[in-house]
Design a binder for these strands. Structure first.
Lengths: 151, 151
DNA sequence: AAGTAATCCTATAGAATTAATATGTTTTAG
DNA sequence: CTAAAACATATTAATTCTATAGGATTACTT
């Protein structure tokens, strides 16, 4: 399952994308409007700022806002940062590759080969979905309609 | 990431599928040949027996063996039992559906709609892969060859 | 019937991770 | 100068995960 941190990060980003022309947004506004725990969210936003996904303005009148266009922020990136590798086993991870301790025959491991496929399709979807698309998906009426965003 | 329990369960099953005509197999044999911690594996095998995935024979000359044909045991089942739901968020889980606490608008949630797609393709692969296929995949020489097992 | 080899069963320890809160520091507009 | 805001780090509490321990039960062999 996705960690709360990852989910909250995505929620906050989607919100920031929706109000992106209104200048800096207060942590408190994001937390309240999205029903997220304020201090926990604070950490998450800070981390995204350090990763240059967000920018911030300190002091009175300050807040957070997107560092780049919603079209340039991929869901995959956020999930990796806050939830860890997409791969279900380390031996098919691109960002955190590692052989399994108990591995007897890397080349012929069936688990690895299947999990490689799972990772690939997952990455295709998540890396292929931008914040901009997420906003559009939320604007579409039915699940069926939103499906056309996938290849 | 997949839990060790899930990985060990799969390893044990693949091994049992490979030697399936040789009668009951000792826990110790499985553990040693697959480099799995013996007592931990014991729990896992017992659980699979209670789920009717394995059968066992107690006492001298006893051991574990598959309760059904490798063609009838799907990877998805094992992952669900030992790792939990395939879904990354509870609101797209078939086996453990639950709305998110912080959910504001279920019908229009972009995260949910994308994660639904991820769950669906993952389930398609894992539920579409049987133990028998895993054994065949391990017998094929290149990763490319083994790819034809996927739809 | 005894002995032994095996699974069965449950408890528990220890480590790691996660979610969240707490507390204070720094920056900046007015 | 003050108040409002982000910045930064430490700590807690709960949960989960991996693994081990120790005995209870079952059944084959002699």
């Amino acid at each position: 399952m996705l960690s709360m941190r990852a989910k909250y990060a995505l929620k906050a980003l989607i919100y920031l994308a929706k109000v992106k022309d209104q200048g800096p947004v207060l942590i408190g506004d994001i937390a309240e409007s999205q029903k997220l725990p304020r201090k926990f969210l604070e950490q998450i936003l800070l981390e995204m700022k350090n990763l240059r996904i967000l920018k911030s303005k300190q002091g009175k009148g300050g807040g957070y806002y997107l560092a780049k266009s919603p079209a340039d922020i991929e869901m995959g990136r956020i999930v990796r940062v806050f939830n860890g590798p997409l791969a279900l086993v380390p031996c098919v991870s691109v960002t955190a590759f590692e052989k399994c301790d108990e591995c007897l025959d890397f080349d012929h491991c069936g688990i690895r080969r299947v999990m490689q496929k799972v990772r690939d399709v997952t990455a295709e979807i998540l890396d292929g979905t931008t914040l901009e698309m997420l906003v559009n998906i939320e604007a579409s009426e039915s699940d069926a309609d939103s499906m056309m965003y996938f290849i």
